[in-house]
Nucleic acid binder design. Structure first.
Lengths: 331, 331
DNA sequence: TTGAAAGCGCTAACAA
DNA sequence: TTGTTAGCGCTTTCAA
């Protein structure tokens, strides 16, 4: 049970050759005598050899792994992004190492440090704000980095995403054009994207002459959060007739709460979300939402990163993949 | 920009010492002359040094990383499990490397091979069935493995979870005792746990003399799937009065569809889920579900694994952490 | 308080 | 067709 891991040498010893021949067999079997091949194959099958990447990482300085950081793995936004990333990395023979950091800059720093200590060849980050230390580490490691989701904040090297501010502005304009008079913005423990959305909302309202009404919870977004804050909001501002939620989870929570209270949507309260998740499209009424190109974001981010890992230097600093507005039935 | 990664030697060169002194400073600063410390510190801050784990992995055969495999990162079941795992690994100084395999044995094999090639010190797997190759690799690597969720299938070394068969049996018994007469089981692209649940359901029905009615979709579970299959099920078996769904996602989808169609829950159709997710407790009516100790499962799995990584040999092969039934309002 | 040497597992380059 | 050598970056051990 405690036997140590099989090495090339172990195999070589069994078949009476040097590890070099075994190594050759693994990479270019045709360079090894057919009779030897059989012996080596047999020995490997018996011992269960697993290649060890450490020596290669050490001598080539390349791991064929890329690090992917998500704020939270329970946030459905990132499922699709991950699928997009893998659609590129998998065929290219790159491993991805996923880590998450609960929206904390400090944890992000720790995770990045850890990923870099395993010598990842590149990083995909989901945040646009980082600690000083993080920036220094990335600099020191000399690896390419792509930041996703946000195309507003100046990136470390490159950003792939969409314009959160514009998305919220357009959604707010829709509500205004439909005649809503008291539109609130519902934020949560705010990352920069949430804040960008709030800005977009505020600008649209300002242009129309309406007063902005912002609620911001210190909690992470969740369906539960959305369902709990409805009462608070109505207590403070009973007259609001529309709520722009920072994302679909919060919006769905509010929507569920409204139904429980007997509020009609959108007659009594219009609700909008962000990202266009499955759940929002299944419930009734369908949730109005900004449909974001999450798969594409992952795909393009990975493509760009691989290009740069392989030496490309003509970096486009911002790649904006746009979004669509789905009015659903909730506005 | 393309400058290569900073090494201890780079720092040593700047301060005019050997890398050995720099290495000492990093591990035991008190062994280094105060004047040297300042110089080294300055150089490190300037260059952004990141320790390189590869040499240590190479010479010690230990990475202080453990591999965690989930079938899907969009399955909410595993959020809590992950938090449980991290509650143990984080303070113990172990890194976790997350990977997912879309419920495919082949992909699982690939992921395990990759994780092992990075020399992870142990593995937490979410599946109880594996390819021959997977078993051989794990054998060859000589790393401890803990399989989670299922305590029915004989584990490679150790299983931590709950009894899916018993959970479904107990839930079925509840429905029977409430007088339901046509209880169906709704499965999906079935892993062994899904199949274990079906067995539990069938046994309970058999004991009561009722006929079992099983629907099984070839798709992965999702809210959408649940919402789409309701019509099919009612078309084939219009008389069913209760549906035991393989998990909460499917159950929530069915529930949403029922509401759209104007079916009353539980009067026209009773619905039950599995795992007790947040969403099920927020919607109306509250979803009946088996509440599983997911955080605890992660915690115990990680504890056991670390113990074994550090040499413990008294392995309890099955650790059953139980479950609770929440009747909610949907039965 | 600092340094020198050796070695972890593998493969590129060269040799036989 | 197979073998030998050297070296990737770091730490352990021994020496100064």
């Amino acid at each position: 049970m405690k036997s140590k891991r099989t090495s090339l040498q172990d195999i070589a010893d069994i078949v009476g050759m040097t590890k070099m021949t075994v190594s050759r067999y693994l990479k270019n079997p045709e360079l090894v005598a057919p009779s030897s091949r059989v012996q080596i194959e047999t020995a490997i099958n018996k011992l269960g050899y697993i290649p060890n990447r450490a020596p290669n990482i050490l001598s080539k300085g390349k791991s064929y792994a890329i690090g992917v950081l998500f704020p939270s793995i329970s946030n459905h936004v990132f499922d699709e992004v991950l699928r997009g990333i893998e659609s590129i990395t998998e065929p290219a023979g790159y491993q991805i190492m996923i880590a998450h950091y609960a929206y904390s800059e400090q944890l992000e720093e720790k995770r990045i440090s850890s990923l870099l200590s395993f010598h990842v060849d590149g990083l995909i980050l989901s945040e646009s704000v980082h600690t000083q230390n993080t920036l220094r580490m990335i600099q020191g490691a000399g690896v390419p980095v792509t930041e996703i989701m946000d195309t507003r904040t100046p990136p470390i090297q490159q950003a792939v995403g969409f314009d959160n501010e514009d998305a919220a502005r357009q959604m707010t304009d829709r509500l205004l054009s439909k005649g809503y008079q008291n539109i609130a913005y519902i934020g949560a423990k705010g990352d920069v994207r949430d804040l960008a959305r709030q800005r977009g909302y505020e600008q649209a309202l300002k242009k129309s002459g309406q007063e902005s009404i912002v609620f911001r919870s210190p909690e992470f977004t969740s369906i539960r959060l959305g369902s709990e804050i409805l009462d608070d909001i109505l207590a403070i501002r009973p007259k609001i007739d529309a709520a722009i939620c920072t994302n679909d989870d919060v919006a769905i929570g509010m929507l569920v709460s409204c139904k429980k209270k007997g509020l009609r949507i959108p007659e009594d309260l219009a609700i909008t979300g962000m990202h266009g998740h499955e759940m929002g499209q299944l419930i009734s009424p369908n949730l109005a939402s900004v449909i974001t190109p999450r798969f594409k974001i992952g795909q393009v981010a990975a493509q760009q990163l691989l290009l740069r890992i392989n030496g490309a230097s003509n970096i486009e600093p911002f790649i904006d993949l746009g979004f669509e507005i789905n009015e659903g039935e909730s506005i």
